[in-house]
Design a protein around this nucleic acid. Structure first.
Lengths: 207, 207
DNA sequence: TTATGTGAACGCATTCACAGCC
DNA sequence: GGCTGTGAATGCGTTCACATAA
């Protein structure tokens, strides 16, 4: 398949949310114009985004809400369940473990890890925190697909390496460091301080 | 000033981090090539990013590490302190309240708010949680610059409106909804579930 | 020589505009 | 007539390449 821009993928996620809203409101059909209005974009953008993956609409009519939803789920890979582990049970890791938004989208947390002896064995939302060293052993039965890294910066690469060795194929990194992963592993970074800096820039340089 | 791309601002934040590293290592001078190597980009990109704001280097030599640091801090608006409130003291809000990465960059938390009576009055990291309704009163003395919104989706617009009325000029939104804010207010969204969906897409559609 | 700063070239994402189909 | 799907045009961010300065 042709390369798809990250911005396109983000919008597809949004479209899916809007479709769920429209479905909840009982709408059977939606036009690219209506979908665009909901998401502050343009109808041409919506149609172009979808056109990368096929022709899902009916000319003169629009898109079937449930069908387009199904298509987007398939495109985004949300028809299956994704097994997620969180490594690092500090405040942020624990907060993510409780976050219901993940489960709602088919991301199932299957393990929580930390190397702090004071935390190992404690329970977080029905899970017992285990040592990061146990990751490989736990994965032997059925590996996780995605690891969320919420350890301190200094431990992030090591945690990542352990996750990759355990068979994880995607890394979501909250540590403020640039991780290196082998080529086939997908990596995404979330850096809250940098987001705030972006705001600071916008406020300092208005317009 | 000409409009600066968001991608450029992100890279400037990264450059600043790298410069701090280089300074800690005692380097006095750095070339665009070295800075680029540190951040997986190109020297031309580094020079172009900086050129939007002036000429900070010496031809044949490179950039003075401390001077470029200072310039970047000024550009990003990090020479001043930013007053931040967090609205929503659930797990994620509380985790952010403890997050040291903010303070390190000059973002000072000046208030924590929630509307849950069970939470109001409780302490989080030296702050007493106050009712969101108190926001305007607290701001009367000295308003906050930035509000971090970590309330549930259904309450996010209301919390945002209260923050804007209280004089906040930047909103960092963690709720999975699209907020509307008056034009001069800067808005950034962080949506963890969407980040995971991006990973799911990458794993489903490799290459 | 070495490395910056920048106009020009390039490539990619967005927008336009209309042919095609319902 | 209405709305999709898509080549073509546009705009914008990145890369190139070189004049310029230390």
């Amino acid at each position: 398949m042709k390369h798809i821009a990250e911005s396109t993928v983000r919008r597809l996620s949004l479209y899916l949310r809007y479709l769920e809203e429209f479905e909840a409101r009982g709408l059977a059909t939606i036009s690219s114009t209506e979908l665009a209005a909901r998401g502050r974009t343009t109808s041409a953008q919506v149609r172009k985004d979808l056109s990368f993956f096929g022709s899902f609409g009916k000319r003169g009519l629009g898109y079937s809400v449930p069908e387009l939803e199904k298509r987007l789920r398939r495109i985004l890979g949300l028809e299956r369940e994704w097994r997620v582990v969180i490594i690092g049970m500090g405040k942020i890791g624990a907060a993510l473990a409780y976050y219901s938004g993940f489960r709602q989208r088919g991301f199932r947390i299957v393990g929580l890890y930390d190397d702090d002896p004071a935390k190992i064995g404690r329970k977080v939302d029905s899970f017992t925190i285990r040592a990061a060293a146990d990751l490989a052993r736990d994965a032997a039965k059925q590996p996780a697909d995605i690891a969320v890294i919420t350890v301190p910066a200094g431990a992030a690469q090591q945690a990542t390496d352990a996750a990759v060795r355990a068979g994880v194929r995607g890394i979501m990194n909250f540590a403020p460091v640039q991780l290196s992963v082998p080529a086939p592993v997908a990596l995404r970074n979330v850096n809250m301080a940098m987001e705030l800096e972006g705001l600071a820039f916008a406020l300092t340089n208005p317009g």
